[in-house]
Structure formats: structure tokens, C-alpha cells
């Protein structure tokens, strides 16, 4: 892989994965309205569960391979890639509670509900771990140095002395 644009198209796997989950939830909710027994809903979607798990696993392998190659990328590409993961992780952190709250519907078969939540958590973990590894390679944590150095600390205080907190 020579540049970031080669990576981006494969990223659609993840977007389709999330769409897949959202569509699945909608489908289950709708189909359940007409179904008498929730177990029937679960049985009906066994193939979907397999697909979901397969997608998550292939996503995990894909991210792992990028993480492995990461030190060989150029600085520009490393920053772009880490930023992409960082933003995706932030999006996931916003999306997951929403999906979880939708899954709290008691009419959804509990086994299926737990399966989806587990898959979501695992997806979050994949991104979280990869982003953390990449971030450590690019950015240095200066917080302790600032707090331990009065000169730096005062310079920081003076920089923002007359403005509001964020």
C-alpha cells in the first residue's frame, strides 16, 4: 500500500457492517411486530448472525494487518490513518449506546440481543486497541513534563490567561 487512498475503499466494509447492524435491528423490530413468538425471529436470522460475525472477524483481520504495517508508512500517512481511526472510534462511541438502547426492547429474543451487543463491543475493542497502538507511536504525552516543569507550566498558563475555558 503506497498511500492512504488505497486503504479507504476497504473501509467501506466497516460502514456496511454498521449499516448491516442498523438494518438488522429495524428488520427484527418490524418482523417481530407480526411474529407471535420471539424465538421465531431469532431462528429466522441465524444466517444474518453468521454474516455479522464473519464481517466483524474480517474487519478485525484487516485492521490488524494495517496496524502491523503501520511503522513502515510515511509520517503523513500515519497521521491520516490514526486520525481516521480516532474519528471512527468517536463515532462508534456515539452510535453504540443508541443501538444498545434500541436493543433494550424486551420483545427481542435475549440470546440475539446479547449476541449483537457482544459483536458491537468487540468491534469497539478492535478500533480502540488499534487506535491506541497507533497513537502511541505518533504522539508523545507531555502532560507530566508540563506539570513537573514550572517554566513550561507558567508559559502554558500565560498562553491562555485571558481566555475562557473550553
Amino acid at each position: 500500500m503506497n498511500n492512504i487512498t488505497l486503504i479507504k475503499p476497504d473501509w467501506e466494509k466497516f460502514e456496511s457492517f454498521l449499516d448491516f447492524i442498523s438494518d438488522l435491528i429495524k428488520e427484527i423490530n418490524e418482523s417481530h411486530k407480526s411474529a407471535a413468538i420471539s424465538v421465531a425471529v431469532f431462528c429466522h436470522d441465524v444466517k444474518a448472525c453468521h454474516d455479522l460475525r464473519k464481517n466483524r472477524k474480517s474487519l478485525g483481520k484487516f485492521i490488524k494487518s494495517i496496524t502491523k504495517d503501520f511503522p513502515n508508512f510515511s509520517e503523513k500517512k500515519q497521521v491520516a490513518l490514526e486520525l481516521l481511526l480516532y474519528n471512527t472510534l468517536n463515532d462508534l462511541k456515539k452510535i453504540i449506546p443508541t443501538i444498545e438502547s434500541e436493543l433494550k426492547d424486551n420483545t427481542i429474543f435475549i440470546g440475539f440481543r446479547l449476541f449483537l451487543i457482544r459483536e458491537l463491543k468487540r468491534t469497539l475493542h478492535i478500533f480502540s486497541r488499534a487506535q491506541h497502538k497507533m497513537s502511541q507511536q505518533i504522539y508523545k504525552d507531555n502532560s507530566e513534563e508540563i506539570l513537573g516543569n514550572p517554566e513550561l507550566y507558567n508559559k502554558l498558563v500565560n498562553t491562555w490567561a485571558d481566555v475562557d475555558d473550553y
Binding site: V79, L83, Y86, N142, E145, I146, L156
Partner: peptide, 9 residues
Amino acid sequence: DSKFFVRKI
């Protein structure tokens, strides 16, 4: 100062 830099967002 570049020492106050945390990350690109």
C-alpha cells in the same frame, strides 16, 4: 509551544 501539542483532531 510544540510541547503543548496533544494530537491532531
